[in-house]
């Protein structure tokens, strides 16, 4: 029997599959395989890490992680960070994008200025920020002094950690978000605005009824990527607080927890269990966002 090879190649689906195959292999090896492995390792309760010999399996690691006060603290810190950093970041970017989209001078200059933090490495930014926020020599406190205010122990006061991280994250991500939103804004047909004006719609009405709905795809994209990114915060804490999770663990985030368990404490299985829990949390948020933002099917 002859295998009709040609027939397969003529099949669009099969050809599409072949085109996708290289990417799938790479994603499979470097994304899905580690997810699968870390999920499996989360169940190892007695094992040899180096030889992958497993003596005992069970749910102990997941139970340990979920009961660990440090993990609960990390989850709390991360959730507070996500709750503020993601929406505020988008909101501020939207305000700047709308301003930059109007007829102001030096538009291009502003656009570049906002984009600089995004293309600068997080490590350099964190080092510069830790210098700005130094209690004795920092620019921040020098500014407060000029204003006649008292010094603030920015980096050693545990209450300041999350606000600083939120500010840093918003500032760093601003440029990227502005570019995405500007592209979205420029894609809106001016005809809609003309029509709305003719109908007597005011500025804010035009904004809420035309700009926002037509910008929705960009906003949805940003909200999903921002939330995923915010859940993964690590570098900023690691560098700014000299490889410590902030004063009194106030900057302990989930990824920091995983890193600490894995590299510092060599609790590989616990780290894997925590990593898988983080994966589930992010997955849940992403699915929820898709569910809430996907266009509802209209009845014809």
């Amino acid at each position: 029997m002859r295998i009709p090879v040609k027939k397969y190649f003529k099949n669009d689906n099969f050809r599409a599959f072949l085109y996708l195959l290289p990417a799938l292999l790479i994603i499979g090896t470097f994304q899905f395989y580690p997810i699968f492995k870390s999920f499996a390792m989360g169940f190892y309760t007695k094992f040899d890490y180096l030889t992958d010999t497993v003596y005992e399996v069970g749910f102990d690691n997941f139970i340990y992680v979920l009961k660990d006060p440090d993990f609960i603290l990390a989850m709390k810190n991360t959730c507070i960070f996500v709750f503020f950093a993601a929406p505020l970041g988008i909101l501020i970017a939207l305000i700047f994008a709308v301003i930059l989209n109007s007829n102001i001078h030096f538009k291009k200059l502003f656009r570049s200025v906002y984009f600089v933090p995004f293309v600068t490495s997080t490590v350099s930014i964190s080092i510069v920020w830790s210098w700005i926020l130094n209690k004795d020599y920092g620019l921040a406190n020098a500014f407060l002094k000029i204003m006649g205010m008292n010094k603030i122990a920015w980096l050693t006061d545990s209450n300041m950690t999350i606000p600083i991280l939120i500010a840093l994250s918003i500032w760093k991500g601003l440029g990227y978000k502005i570019i995405i939103l500007l592209a979205g804004l420029q894609g809106i047909d001016q005809q809609y605005y003309f029509a709305a004006r003719m109908d007597g719609a005011r500025k804010h009405q035009r904004f809420w009824s035309i700009t926002i709905p037509l910008l929705k795809p960009s906003l949805v994209f940003l909200s999903i990527t921002s939330i995923i990114g915010a859940f993964k915060i690590f570098d900023e804490v690691y560098i700014m607080y000299s490889q410590q999770p902030g004063p009194l663990k106030s900057g302990l985030t989930i990824v920091y927890y995983i890193f600490n368990k894995f590299y510092r404490h060599w609790e590989f299985a616990t780290a894997s269990a925590a990593a898988f829990i983080l994966f589930l949390v992010i997955l849940m948020f992403t699915v929820l966002q898709f569910a809430f933002t996907s266009p509802k099917e209209k009845e014809e």
Binding site: F17, L20, L21, L24, L25, I27, G28, T29, F32, Y33
Partner: peptide, 15 residues
């Protein structure tokens, strides 16, 4: 199905 198959294959080659 094809995409899922490729994913599984890549997992198990590693395993």
């Amino acid at each position: 199905f094809a995409v899922a198959l490729a994913m599984m294959a890549s997992m198990f080659t590693g395993c």
